[in-house]
Simulated assay, not measured.
Amino acid sequence: MSTTALILFAHGARAASWAAPFQRLQKLTQESSPLVRVELAFLEFMSPTLPELVEQLLADGINVATLVPVFFGQGGHVMRDLPLMIDELRLKHPQLQIKQVDAVGEDALVLQAIRDYCLRSLP
């Protein structure tokens, strides 16, 4: 069993269907990296929240995690809210090693993939 987790962190929405692409991303990522536990957590409106997921991961013996904000940019949630949440989790769970990376939309390859998708829409 892995002791490392990759947390895909999304905003969340009231409509359950909103989570479908994130769930597909989680499944694709897990299939590509079977030795790492890949989980999905939400900021609000959906479960699990990040604190709920961290509790479960720790209960399962996982104490090292990388958190990937599945956000298009580094907005207020990623720049302010998320670091506060992570600080609170670190205080509550000092055994937890958690690293946050930039929002996915900040990555050049992600932007190129989105560009390619947009260009494929042309007649």
Rank of each mutant, 00 (worst) to 15 (best):
I7D: 00
R80I: 12
K92Y: 08
L40D: 05
A103L: 10
L58K: 11
A20V: 15
E55P: 00
L96I: 13
D87Y: 05
P123N: 09
L122T: 09
H77S: 08
P21W: 11
I86P: 03
C118N: 08
S17L: 10
I114F: 15
L91N: 12
L82P: 01
L40W: 04
V78I: 11
F72L: 12
A15F: 13
F45Q: 01
T66V: 15
G61C: 03
E55C: 07
S2A: 04
A10T: 04
R24Y: 04
V101H: 08
F42C: 09
N63E: 11
V36Q: 00
K99C: 06
L35R: 13
I98N: 02
L43A: 10
Q100C: 14
R90C: 00
G105Q: 06
M46F: 15
F45I: 03
I114K: 11
P83V: 15
V64D: 13
I62H: 06
L109S: 14
L89T: 14
A15M: 07
Q30M: 10
L67A: 08
E88V: 15
Q23E: 13
R120L: 02
T66R: 04
Q56A: 00
F22S: 02
A59S: 11
G76D: 12
H11K: 12
L53W: 03
V38K: 02
L28N: 15
A5I: 08
L122Q: 04
H93N: 07
L91P: 01
L84D: 12
V68A: 07
A65T: 07
P48V: 12
G73F: 11
A108P: 01
A59D: 12
D116I: 04
M79Q: 15
Q97V: 08
P48L: 12
R80S: 09
A41L: 05
L50I: 15
A10C: 09
E44W: 14
D81K: 14
A10R: 01
L40C: 12
V78T: 05
L96Q: 05
M79N: 15
V38F: 01
V68G: 00
A15I: 09
L6V: 10
E52Y: 08
D107V: 07
I7N: 00
L111H: 11
A108V: 10
P83A: 14
L67T: 08
F9G: 05
F72A: 03
L82F: 01
L67H: 01
G76L: 05
S32K: 13
R37G: 07
L96M: 13
H77A: 07
E31A: 08
W18T: 06
L25V: 08
M79H: 15
V101D: 07
R24W: 06
F72C: 02
D81M: 11
T66M: 02
A108K: 13
P94G: 01
R120T: 05
F42Q: 00
L109A: 14
R115S: 02
V101G: 03
T4G: 04
Q56K: 02
V110E: 06
G76K: 13
L43G: 03
E106K: 14
E39H: 02
A59H: 13
Q56Y: 00
A13Y: 14
R80W: 06
D102C: 03
T4V: 07
V104E: 08
